[in-house]
Design a protein around this nucleic acid. Structure first.
Length: 345
RNA sequence: CCGCCCUUAGCUCAGACUGGUAGAGCAGUCGACUGUAGAUCGACUUGCCCCCCGUUCAAAUCGGGGAGGGCGGACCA
């Protein structure tokens, strides 16, 4: 596989690359550059996470060395989103869910290295470096970096300003060439690019995935159940959530349903070598078949494809895509019960 | 260590002075209208009023104690 092909795989479906030239050089210079993404094990994982995880399959295919950090300490530092004594259980659940999603994306979870934050973040060397970073960073700088990630509050905790420093240091500790994450992570990684050269590590190339719009017409929110599909939602629930979604006819911008189709369904169908079939009643013109997302979007924009027909097709595809994850998680209900005792008694 | 303020629906808060077992907005649910959803209209739901003790016929409301949170001061030989 040549560099152009690898570059294409690595950057497809990405929201932004900082900087593309650096990435090209990296791919040219290294056979297997390292990329990492971190997840703080807080709330239950949902389909939004799938967007970022799905791409790990592309990375593997492009011969990248992929590391997933389960950032347990971060989950607690961020306004105690996860109570300290649930970190073990949630870490275990996250790894299982992530492996399930990798598998659903058509890759082998064994090809990915999983690392747990506290396994190295308490080391002497790491701690000292962190204190040095703290000494050279203003509160305002750190807060600005983390503002899209850390929960905002009238009385912010110190944890929230340590958070982006640690995340920057993680890039170094994991020896990552590429820092990958949702576009909400941009602020933190721009801080990393500023700081890391002073701390003995190259500026990471940053690769950001889009954050999918929610199903209710605003941002997807993990606390708003109707705005997202959960990995453990049964097919009926998935279909009714899609069916209830905000989806104006012909409107392509910020349309959650279309984004699901674009970033989740089509990439996976591509993997399966399948096309997207819309079953449509004869009175409205009969079935439609799409090979590429762009064709579907064009039809939707021209109002040839009605939202109701799009929804019913999307609902069943999404359900099918998450099915392996759903099975994996529901067959281990004790994992969820331990990680989220309040919602899974 | 000292002082002051806050804690009521999922969320933001009103009600406390002048005791009579709770309200608004948002959110949510359900209908109507749309070949979807939204918008709009109509209806509906929601509560250990932070905890304990006391006063009283009666306490979200008054008194005492406690917990959690916030703000400020003092200390800086």
């Amino acid at each position: 596989m040549d560099t152009a092909e690898r570059l294409d795989l690595v950057t497809q479906y990405a929201e932004e690359v900082i900087e593309e030239d650096e990435l090209r050089e990296l791919l040219e210079a290294e056979d297997d550059p390292s990329v990492y993404i971190g997840y703080a094990p807080t709330g239950e994982m949902h389909i939004g996470h799938f967007t970022t995880i799905r791409k790990l399959a592309d990375f593997l295919q492009a011969d990248l060395d992929v590391t997933v950090l389960v950032a347990d300490l971060h989950a607690h530092l961020d306004d105690e989103k996860s109570p300290f004594d649930l970190l073990d259980a949630r870490t275990e659940y996250y790894q299982e869910a992530i492996e399930g999603m990798v598998e659903a994306a058509g890759a082998n979870p064994d090809d990915i290295s999983f690392v747990r934050g506290m396994d190295y973040q308490l080391d002497e060397e790491y701690s000292l470096e962190l204190y040095r970073m703290a000494a050279e960073t203003t509160l305002a700088r750190s807060q600005r970096a983390a503002s899209e990630v850390v929960r905002e509050s009238e009385s912010p905790n110190l944890g929230g300003v340590i958070y982006p420093l640690m995340q920057s240091l993680d890039v170094k500790s994991l020896d990552a060439d590429i820092a990958y994450g949702g576009i909400d992570q941009r602020g933190i990684y721009m801080l990393s690019r500023e700081m890391l050269p002073e701390h003995g590590h190259d500026k990471p190339v940053c690769l950001f995935a889009p954050l999918l719009a929610g199903l209710t017409g605003d941002k997807m929110s993990s606390s708003k159940d109707a705005s997202k599909v959960n990995l453990t939602d049964d097919p009926d629930t998935v279909e009714s959530k899609i069916d209830d979604a905000y989806c104006p006819m012909g409107e392509v911008e910020d349309n959650g349903v279309l984004e699901y189709v674009r970033y989740l369904v089509f990439p996976v169908l591509d993997e399966w070598d399948d096309s997207f079939v819309v079953e449509r009643p004869e009175q409205y013109g009969g079935d439609l078949v799409y090979e590429r997302y762009e064709e579907l979007e064009a039809d939707f924009e021209s109002e040839e494809l009605h939202p109701a027909d799009l929804k019913s097709a999307t609902g069943s595809y999404i359900s099918e895509v998450i099915d392996p994850v759903r099975k994996r998680l529901t067959s281990q209900s004790d994992l969820l019960a331990k990680a989220y005792p309040e919602s899974h008694e």
